[in-house]
């Protein structure tokens, strides 16, 4: 029937047009960009993630971390991302060019993690502290104790064992998933320069970085009480 044909062509075409323009159009643009070769450092940025970190990205997705954490820093002056010390420049498309599972995230019930690895180093948060934070939970974040297992000590105690009060002869150690997740979190950094994302020029009058307790060092403070 003729009117039906026009009707379906109309609906099909309307959706197809938006798909071609927005999805395909932006994809072609972004794919053409590729990575950025930085002649000063004589390397391409961003670098590909290590194998363990890439595994950690899968764990991050499996646990639905993106429901509470974003991984995108908005530009200075748009929101307070940089005032909170989440990054020194805006995140741009090329930061994610090599990621097969980018985790831009949906909500900020917890802090942004785009530069978590960099912040952790500055705040002196090492793997042990991160394991502890995941195991115990912190602030509004629930404990992810299922990422750890209680194991009998055979021979020597594992170097990754958590400093928890457990029965003698036992230890709590991170599973391979926890190890991958922590590697991933520590690998999160956008600390290189990209021409399209210049570092923000922050006026002196505005407090550039809040007190470390706020969000620069989410892991630096003691783990939350576990009642």
């Amino acid at each position: 029937m003729k009117p039906s044909l026009y009707f379906f062509l109309g609906v099909f075409g309307a959706i197809a047009l938006s798909w071609a323009a927005i999805v395909v159009g932006s994809h072609r643009q972004l794919r053409a960009l590729g990575t950025h070769f930085d002649p000063l450092d004589n390397m391409s940025v961003p670098a590909a993630m290590s194998g363990q970190a890439a595994q950690g990205q899968r764990v991050y997705q499996e646990l639905g971390c993106g429901a509470c954490h974003t991984q995108q820093v908005r530009r200075y002056g748009y929101g307070w991302d940089q005032n909170r010390g989440w990054g020194e420049r805006q995140s741009v498309a090329r930061d994610y060019a090599l990621q097969t599972h980018p985790q831009l995230g949906q909500a900020r019930i917890g802090p942004d993690l785009a530069n978590f690895g960099e912040r952790a180093v500055k705040a002196g948060v090492d793997r042990a502290k991160l394991y502890r934070m995941l195991h115990d939970g912190q602030g509004g974040m629930p404990a992810f104790s299922f990422l750890f297992e209680r194991r009998a000590i055979v021979g020597q105690k594992s170097s990754a064992a958590l400093a928890l009060p457990v029965a003698p002869g036992w230890q709590v150690v991170p599973t391979s998933r926890a190890e991958a997740l922590v590697s991933y979190l520590l690998a999160l950094k956008q600390d290189y320069a990209l021409p399209e994302a210049p570092a923000a020029v922050i006026p002196a009058a505005v407090p550039a970085t809040p007190a470390p307790a706020a969000s620069t060092a989410p892991a630096a403070t003691a783990p939350a009480k576990t009642p």
Binding site: S26, Q29, L33, P39, R75, G77, Q90, V92, P195, E196
Partner: peptide, 28 residues
Amino acid sequence: SPLAYNEEAPPIAAGAAAVPPPIDPVVL
């Protein structure tokens, strides 16, 4: 432009990506 991420900034000239700015030898 695929390189415009700040709607407040002046537009980036076409081909800016293709021709990177000259490197200051002292900085390098």
